[in-house]
């Protein structure tokens, strides 16, 4: 059985892009912009519902990049523009300038969860990736920094989880896919996920490895104990990844919907690839299908086409 979900920033459609341009030029006010955000989020939620997605998210349409919403505290500031991995998207580096402490919730404002009726999920960067992509100008040790940042993040997520029933929390981990990290950091991440399960016990925790082309971290994935391991299967050597990920998890999410190509994959091609990997990984239970990495690298219309493709694949797979 195939289940579906999306992760990462979803592209904004034409009317939202226009509204943002108008807002930047002060031609419309914040309320008018908020109205457009609401309309476009509802449209995206409907698109996922129509295609029978198993976890539904808001598309993160208000997010400027994966890190910016966490640059709102007194200790983390948005810094210079830096290339986002091997893409032509640029993010602002968070500059950590002071001790990170939770004062009041602010992350919740960036999730439009009230617009999702059921199967709500949220998506965010895992703390290891966030800190690797930041510039630390305050802490002397990574452990100390991680401790404060993960506590801060947990408190933000606790507030969200307290106010909304979350069926899934999707952690996106480009760093785990893209570069080798220390075993110590794996243990820190493991502890973070344990804490996450405590504050959101009914939510499935997925860990999604974007840009997966460095394979050394794969052997540690079973230690992390995420409920679902998501694999970007469009970036590195697909066969090798499948070989290395055998028996690390009971639930896999296959990132076979390529966020870097402009045409929707043929359903029969994707089904063939799913079957190949399911056999290789000896998956007995359900398997998830997801986007390889964030769909924001595609124009909106193509991303929508890919979401519809995922719905079609689920239906065809069910029908044998």
């Amino acid at each position: 059985m195939i289940k579906l979900y999306l992760t990462g920033l979803f592209p904004r459609n034409k009317s939202l892009r226009r509204a943002l341009r108008d807002y930047d030029k002060k031609l419309i006010d914040r309320d008018a912009l908020k109205k457009i955000y609401t309309e476009e989020t509802i449209e995206l939620v409907n698109l996922q519902e129509k295609n029978d997605f198993d976890f539904i998210y808001d598309g993160m349409l208000t997010w400027q990049d994966f890190l910016r919403p966490l640059c709102n505290s007194k200790s983390i500031f948005a810094g210079p523009l830096i290339r986002w991995f091997e893409t032509n998207f640029f993010y602002r580096v968070p500059l950590i300038k002071d001790k990170i402490e939770f004062t009041k919730p602010s992350l919740s404002e960036f999730y439009l969860l009230n617009l999702i009726k059921e199967k709500s999920s949220i998506c965010l960067l895992d703390p290891i990736s966030f800190l690797h992509l930041s510039e630390n100008n305050y802490y002397r040790s990574f452990d100390e920094l991680f401790y404060d940042f993960s506590n801060y993040l947990i408190k933000e997520l606790e507030f969200i989880s307290h106010n909304h029933t979350l069926s899934a929390i999707h952690l996106v981990s480009p760093i785990l896919g893209f570069q080798k990290i220390d075993l110590n950091e794996i243990h820190l991440l493991e502890q973070f996920i344990k804490n996450l399960k405590k504050i959101a016990p009914s939510a499935n925790i997925s860990l999604n490895l974007y840009y997966l082309k460095v394979y050394e971290n794969i052997r540690y994935l079973s230690e992390i104990q995420a409920d679902i391991i998501g694999l970007d299967l469009c970036y590195g050597d697909r066969e090798k990844i499948a070989e290395l990920t055998k028996e690390i998890s009971s639930k896999y999410s296959l990132g076979l919907i390529d966020s870097f190509i402009s045409y929707a994959e043929a359903p029969e091609y994707v089904i063939r690839e799913i079957n190949k990997i399911v056999n290789k990984l000896n998956i007995k239970e359900e398997v998830y299908l997801t986007n390889s990495s964030e769909l924001d690298r595609l124009p909106y219309e193509i991303a929508v086409e890919k979401v519809n493709l995922m719905g079609k694949i689920k239906k065809e797979y069910k029908n044998g």
């Binding site: 592209p11 904004r12 034409k14 892009r17 943002l20 341009r21 930047d24 400027q64 990049d65 523009l81 032509n88 998207f89 640029f90 993010y91 602002r92 402009s262 924001d296 690298r297 595609l298 124009p299 909106y300 219309e301 193509i302």
Partner: peptide, 10 residues
């Protein structure tokens, strides 16, 4: 041309 893609921010 197939559509617009984000470079940074808006």
């Amino acid at each position: 041309f197939v559509g617009e893609v984000r470079v940074f921010d808006n």
